[in-house]
Every structure is written in C-alpha cells, then in structure tokens.
Nucleic acid binder design. Sequence first.
DNA 1: CCAATAGTGTCTATGAGACATTATCAT
DNA 2: ATGATAATGTCTCATAGACACTATTGG
Lengths: 245, 245
Amino acid sequence: MPDDQWTPPAVLLAVDLVILTLRENHLQVLLVERGVEPYRGAMALPGGFLGHLHEDLSATADRELAEEAGLSAKGLHLEELGVYGAPGRDPRGRVVSVAYLAIAPRLPEPVAGTDASGACWTPTDLVLSGEAALAFDHRRIIADGVEQARSKLEHSALATAFCGPTFTISELQEVYEAVWGVPLDPRNFYRKVQSVDGFIVPAGPSKRTETGRPARLFRPGPRRILHPPMTRPVSTPADRKATKR
Amino acid sequence: MPDDQWTPPAVLLAVDLVILTLRENHLQVLLVERGVEPYRGAMALPGGFLGHLHEDLSATADRELAEEAGLSAKGLHLEELGVYGAPGRDPRGRVVSVAYLAIAPRLPEPVAGTDASGACWTPTDLVLSGEAALAFDHRRIIADGVEQARSKLEHSALATAFCGPTFTISELQEVYEAVWGVPLDPRNFYRKVQSVDGFIVPAGPSKRTETGRPARLFRPGPRRILHPPMTRPVSTPADRKATKR
DNA sequence: CCAATAGTGTCTATGAGACATTATCAT
DNA sequence: ATGATAATGTCTCATAGACACTATTGG
C-alpha cells in the first residue's frame, strides 16, 4: 500500500499507426525505416511520441500520419486498435504505445517526396509470415490490426474505406477477397451488398470501364453497421492455395 | 518540428475496470465511491495508477481488481476495452487511462469487508440513462464496455464467463437475455447453443433443480469463437417495420 | 392429480451458395 | 461479329424462428 507521499510513475506515450491499403490485390501495410536508435535501419510502423502535454491522442495520430506517411487524415478511416505497454518492449524505458488502425484508399504511388524517406508498402503476408523483420513488437501490432480489419469487414462498412469516393461493386469485392484471402462468387456478392440497405448507394449515372461492360459507380452509404453481416467463408486449406489473380 | 534536444512529455497512466456481472437478471457494473479529490464522494469505476514503472498493465488491472473490488483475477475474464486519454478529462493533469473489461460470474453478495468500502453493484441501465452521476468520463467507458460485451456475446463464448464453473442452458440463456435486453425462445436457444460444436460441453450426470424438471449441467467448451455466431434479434421497432421483401 | 421447468419435434420463410443467362461495352 | 465484364435470374439446401408436444421432477 503506497503511503501518502507516493506519486504514481509517469510513462512516455507513443502512437503507432497500422496503415492498410490494397495494392495489386494484396493487403499491404506502410512501413518506415527507422533513422535513429534503437532498431536503427530496421523497418517499423510509422508513429511517434505525444507532441506536447496537451495534445489529443487522435491529434498525435493525425500528425504522425502527415509527418511520417505523407497522408492527410482527412477522408481516411482511423480507429483505435489497442494498447501495447509491456515493460521492456522499448529499450529506452517505459513506453506505452497506443496503436491506431488506418485504412487508406488505393493511392497513386508509394508515398514519396515526403518526410518519410524510407516509407514503403509491404504485403502483410510477408510481415505476418516473419519474412520481414520488424522493430519492437510491431509484428504483433500488425497482426492484431489485420485481424481487426478482417473482422470488421463482416459487421461494418469498413470495406468502403479501402475504395475511393466512388467505386464499382467489383472493386468492393476485390477488397473483401484481398483482406479475407478467399475468392467470392461475383453474382452472390452483387446480390448481397445490394440487399444490405444503406451499405452502398448509387453514385449518379456515371460508369467506369476498363474492358468489357462498364460498371455502375457507388458511394458509401449511411449505414455503418451491417445487418445482416457479410459472411466470411470458412477458409479451407484448399482456399489458401487459390490466391486469386 | 522538434529540435534535437526535445524530449517527449510524460503522462500519468491509469487503469480503470468495467466489471460486469448479472444480478437479479440485470446487467450490473461495480462502482466505488471516491474517497479523495477530485470527484470526492462521487461514484466511479474501480481503478488506479500504475503501481511502479515496471508493472505490466494487466498486473495493474489484477491488483486493482483485488484492492478496490476484492476480487481475484483468477478465473475471471479480463480483456482490454480501450484508451481514454482526452486532455482535460482529469483535473489533476494529463492522465491517460487504459480501460479493461472484466466479466464476473454471479457472486454471493455485494463485495464487502474489503478495501472497497463503498463498492456496490449498479444496474447499467441506471448508469447509461444518466440517472446515476459518475466521475470523469466513466459513463462513456461503461457504455463502451456494455457495447463490447453485447457484441462479443454474438461471436465469442464470452457468455460463459458470466456463469459459474457449471451452468444450465437456461442460466446461459438468462445471460444473453439480460445483456442483450431481449427475450429469446428457450427451445430455439437450446437447439442453437448445442449445435455450435465446442461451445458448451456436458458436465457429468449431475443436474440442478429448483422447481420443475432438473436441468443438465454444462461446462464452457474449448471453442472460444462461435461459428456460426449467435444471432442477436433486432430490437428496435423501426427495424421491424423496415423488414422488406 | 397439477404446476413448473427441461428437453424434443416439426413446419415454414428466408437467405446463402451454386450456377445459367442476358446485357452492354470495346475492338 | 468476338471477347470481356456487368448485371440478373433460378434453383437447392441449410437454418433461424415460430410453436406444439413430451419428459421429469416436486407438491
């Protein structure tokens, strides 16, 4: 039992960002090369310490998003992921990190010309299989982030955050297939997403075409929680082999 | 851009506990009366600061569970809920609180004879409706905790954490009904929970009877994630009307 | 016997999944 | 025309939900 003069210990608070996007039909995460010790030269999640004592945590996330990833927080999905505060996770001392999960729509090119000199998109498969070494406990944080994204795709309209302001139903399907890692039937998918009221709404008469019949464009609808949920197929070993396209 | 001499600010780290249980068929949360400023005399979640610089967050949660609630962390469910770190949420300064969600089985009596002098179970309805005033942002934390419990009842075996080591199917049903706040059909519920393989397993030939036919006893099974999930009925009349086709 | 709760059976409407078919573009 | 992709239709099977019924205790 602490005595009356006891004061609680203070810790350093950091924010780490798991920024996910779709590139070439694969779920990818943004990593930066660390320029300072510890783990200098290793890949790590973008992030940093609380800027000043009165900065909100989400403000820290926004700031790091801009500084380290060259991304604007405006218009991209950002949600809390979890707290990582095990003693010893950072050799500099007691650092408690609040992880945020960000979902970015398809971006033109790897982030460049920004503060983030060594920023690059990395397939989550590479990270999770352990082929790419990461600083701190960032591999675990990414694993949790990917799992949260997979789970939220079922029950929420999170998938639209991977797309631009407008998208086709096929593009939305690619999101589900890439994040879940399973192929889906286009016809059933089409019926399904249309039947969930308010999930996606038609975006005018415009269409988009690459080859074949042009597809109608949709916008994210008002409904954030899906009833009934999108059902994720049980992944069989046979499905894992069938990485599409 | 901070200069080279800049050092990040340190914050106070606290742990708050949302301890839920079932009492008299109502979802209740454990609150304690604050003995010190700020909010002296108001009701608040049990919790406290990090004990020392090398204490793990979950260890802090376990310690507060014992000190403030008189509960042993052994055998009760504990999971992370979220981070609450808005500047100004604590008049003492920058305090970032990590909230944990704990689920306790039915307890004999309100926790008494412990350090927690003013600890008492309070129906979550009272808290969420605003009839009971709470310190800090604890009302919001409880709201998030209840919502997380409601959600996890669908997809995980969390419901068994509300029960003792063995339980009847009716008791399990009471958990779902109390947390979700909706009545369920006993016969369909019976079939459903039995059909989810590994959710609950029979606990020997013993039975429990109060009045009427004795019920078989079950234990929590190995399955932590439910396939398919328990489906929560739509409760609002608006959704009922909006049912189409 | 009756009251009360446990457990089982059956029907039906809905929805998911498999798969055929038609529509609309570029070339 | 052909090739390619979008969009719609149809069928079947599984299951959630509604509800009748039987079983097993105590009084």
